[in-house]
Design a protein around this nucleic acid. Structure first.
Length: 229
DNA sequence: AGCCAGGCTACCG
DNA sequence: CGGTAGCATGGC
């Protein structure tokens, strides 16, 4: 039997938002503000400041974080970012200049250091080639190390483009709720959200962040615990 | 002691 | 096409 998916998508957003509040994604290293409603690291989040990131440096930092957090806990990616920051290496030029050994040592804590070292250099070259322009999704996908989710994360959180971000948690939660088939493709799931939500960057930003927050609490392990719907 | 983490590429059938 | 092994380290 067919279930109307429009109401659930919006209703779940409202419920998550009232449960956890504005999430302040994407975290930036120069914001030390706290958000006690969040699991894991509470640094760097900036609730309701939708004007961030607001310069090339912050945009590039979000991009680095998007690579570093691939299949990795944010706390680990965050440590890698801080290591790079201490090396004064949160710029594409510095990432390209530094030695392989130094780069790998800095990002080691985020795992997959050999791959990610390559990916960081690839995205750095790409970023420089943009000369300040906002990239298209198709261009991002051509960069080695940037797939669907990373591409959408970069567009949504670094460039404030309305691209909904789907991750493993999104599929897990909405499959568990019986709203989608487990094998639904990335693009189909993305479209499901985008076609049932107002095309507003803050909504997309909060929804994905709220999904992650909720999943960290209730969908971490396999028989899933409670969820409040 | 395992299992999981805000995935992606390369390669397989 | 869809499916999956391998990638690395740290936290709980």
């Amino acid at each position: 039997m067919s279930v109307d998916k429009r109401e659930p998508i919006m209703n779940i957003y409202e419920k998550l938002y009232s449960l956890y509040g504005p999430q302040g994604w994407w975290p930036l290293t120069d914001y030390e503000g706290e958000n006690p409603t969040k699991t894991g690291s509470i640094k760097g989040y900036h609730p309701l400041k939708y004007d961030l990131p607001k310069n090339e440096g912050q945009i590039f930092e979000v991009i680095l974080g998007a690579i570093l957090t691939q299949n990795t806990a944010w706390t680990s990616a965050e440590m890698a970012l801080h290591n790079l920051k201490e090396l004064n290496a949160l710029t594409p030029q510095k990432i390209l200049e530094m030695s392989d050994e130094t780069l790998k040592k800095a990002i080691r804590c985020a795992g997959f250091l050999n791959q990610k070292a390559v990916y960081l250099r690839e995205i750095s070259k790409f970023f420089i080639s943009l000369k300040g322009r906002t990239p298209q999704r198709k261009e991002l996908l051509k960069v080695k190390g940037v797939g669907n989710e990373t591409s959408d994360s970069i567009l949504l959180y670094a460039y404030k483009k309305p691209e909904f971000v789907v991750d493993a948690y999104t599929r897990r939660i909405f499959t568990h709720l019986g709203l989608v088939e487990e094998k639904i493709s990335y693009m189909e799931l993305k479209k499901l959200f985008e076609s049932n939500l107002p095309r507003e960057v803050p909504v997309y930003q909060e929804y994905h962040a709220l999904i992650v927050e909720h999943a960290k609490r209730y969908y971490r392990k396999k028989p899933y615990g409670v969820d409040d719907f």
